[in-house]
Design a protein around this nucleic acid. Structure first.
Length: 207
DNA sequence: CGGCTTTGACCTGCGC
DNA sequence: GCGCAGGTCAAAGCCG
């Protein structure tokens, strides 16, 4: 199911996307372009009946194959196992790379769609809402959240899918510079690179 | 009273 | 330059 460079997940009523862009052209971020769409999400869990889902808006940014992205704990072992089986390591912390030719930091995004009555899922981090905006061609407003941990600039956007409001689309942007307050992470140290890699995690026993 | 949400205003980028 | 759309700010109000 998973292939390096483009991962798809079908996990009951939740679909996850980790889609590096610009690997061949190297211009994914700078041009703002991305693949316009691909088939993948299946609301009924049947991968034989993919629902076309435009991801261009959610994946304008290139996601480095060696990103320091730390996925939300909610994404479960499914994400970790699929990424790791594809040879993608998940270092903890680390520096943010720069957009070529600019001094702007390269943000990293990951989006997933899940069937949910509630728009806000408990991903273990504490978020503060800072904006709400109506989106063109969509009856549903988009909500903007920032990680409320001091010094952490991770943002997420939450909106309901225009064609099927029973699905919530959550887009994470940035890298947490701290671990989830509700999760215990287990890491391995790579002596060669000097980086620490997430090898597992679990919900804090105290919670 | 502190932290959070709400919401209108403002800023910025982009296309024409 | 102008208008539009997306993203962010910040004051006001709410709530525990």
């Amino acid at each position: 199911m998973a292939a390096v460079g483009e991962l798809q997940f079908h996990y009951s009523d939740m679909d996850l996307y980790f889609m590096p862009h610009g690997n061949s052209s190297g211009s994914g971020y700078e041009s703002g372009s991305a693949s316009s769409s691909f088939s993948g999400p299946t609301g009924d869990g049947n991968s034989d009946n993919p629902i076309p889902f435009d991801l261009s808006e959610y994946f304008r940014d290139e996601v480095s194959m060696h990103s320091s992205f730390l996925p939300p704990p909610y994404m479960d072992n499914c994400l970790f196992q699929a990424m790791q089986s594809s040879g993608i390591n998940l270092p903890v912390g680390g520096s943010v790379s720069r957009i070529p030719g600019t001094d702007k930091p390269r943000t990293e995004r990951i989006a997933f769609r899940m069937k949910s009555v509630a728009e806000i899922i408990d991903d273990g981090f504490k978020w503060r809402k800072y904006g709400k905006k109506s989106v063109k061609n969509s009856p549903n407003p988009r909500n903007y959240y920032k990680c409320s941990t001091e010094g952490c600039s991770v943002k997420k956007r939450v909106e309901r899918e225009k064609d099927d409001p029973s699905y919530v689309i959550t887009t994470y942007e940035g890298i947490h510079n701290h671990v989830s307050p509700s999760m215990v992470y287990y890491t391995n140290h790579d002596a060669e690179s000097g980086q620490y890699y997430v090898s597992g995690y679990q919900i804090s026993p105290g919670l």
